[in-house]
Structures are given as C-alpha cells and as structure tokens.
C-alpha cells in the first residue's frame, strides 16, 4: 500500500493574495504530499465539495482579509455537518492572537500566523492527520 497525504489548499472569500498559499503548497509538495490547489475566491460550499471529491486528509485555508472568523468557521461547520470526521482542518494568514482559541474550538486544529516556518506546518500535519 502506498498511502499519500492529500491536502486541499484553498483560498475562501474575496481575498486575492495567494503568495503565502502557494509557498505552503509547494513546501507540502516537497514534503511528499499531494496538494490540490483550487485558486482564489472559493465559497465554503466549494471548498467542502472539493474536499469530498478529492478525498483529502487535510483542508488548509488561507486568508489575509480578516474575514477568518466568518469564512474559516463556515468551512469548519460545513465539514462537520457533512460528516467528514476524518478531515484535519488547518488555517493560516493574518490572524490575531485572541481569535486562535476560538478557531480551535470551531475545529480548526492548527492556526499558523505570518513567519511560521513551513516545517512546523508539515510536522503538524504529519502528527495530526486522522487516517
């Protein structure tokens, strides 16, 4: 058996800055993962439907616009509602310290701010992936 970790890297909402997402996508690729990149302006429904079709182990959300408390939470709730219990959700971007614990409570297991070394994200995924 040759299991590979599949990760969806998604940019929900109207934020058009995807440099960070692309850097993370490439780092995960170089760590041996299969990264599905969907491009900008995804709705929560699109992110979750893509996660279903691609049968990913991880959904990684990137947002720099400040709307993470709405959009990350929308995605996390929809993932829960659809019963995708074995999907690990992580998020990154400009996220104030006080929001992090709230995001954890909503099921976003890892939250990574600016300056996080890519190795930290890779390690987190490898240690927390659910299947």
């Amino acid at each position: 058996m040759e299991k590979k970790i599949r990760v969806l890297v998604a940019k929900p909402g109207l934020d058009g800055h995807d440099r960070g997402a692309k850097i993370v996508a490439r780092a995960l690729r170089d760590a041996g993962m299969e990264v599905i990149y969907t491009g900008l302006h995804q709705t929560a429904e699109m992110v979750v439907e893509t996660a279903i079709q691609e049968d990913v182990d991880v959904v990684g959300l990137s947002l720099l616009s400040g709307a993470h408390m709405t959009l990350f939470v929308d995605v996390a709730r929809l993932i829960k509602k659809k019963g995708l219990d074995d999907v690990l959700i992580i998020g990154g971007g400009i996220i104030p310290e006080e929001d992090i614990s709230k995001l954890h409570k909503e099921g976003i297991a890892g939250v990574f701010g600016p300056g996080t070394p890519c190795e930290d994200i890779i390690k987190f995924i490898k240690e927390n992936v659910k299947r």
């Binding site: 590979k4 996508a25 490439r26 995960l28 690729r29 170089d30 760590a31 041996g32 993962m33 299969e34 990264v35 599905i36 990149y37 969907t38 491009g39 893509t50």
Partner: peptide, 8 residues
C-alpha cells in the same frame, strides 16, 4: 509529492 492545479 505533487501539486495538482488543474481544478483552478
């Protein structure tokens, strides 16, 4: 690893 970007 792979970067699968055709869905874009």
């Amino acid at each position: 690893g792979a970067l699968l970007g055709d869905r874009v």
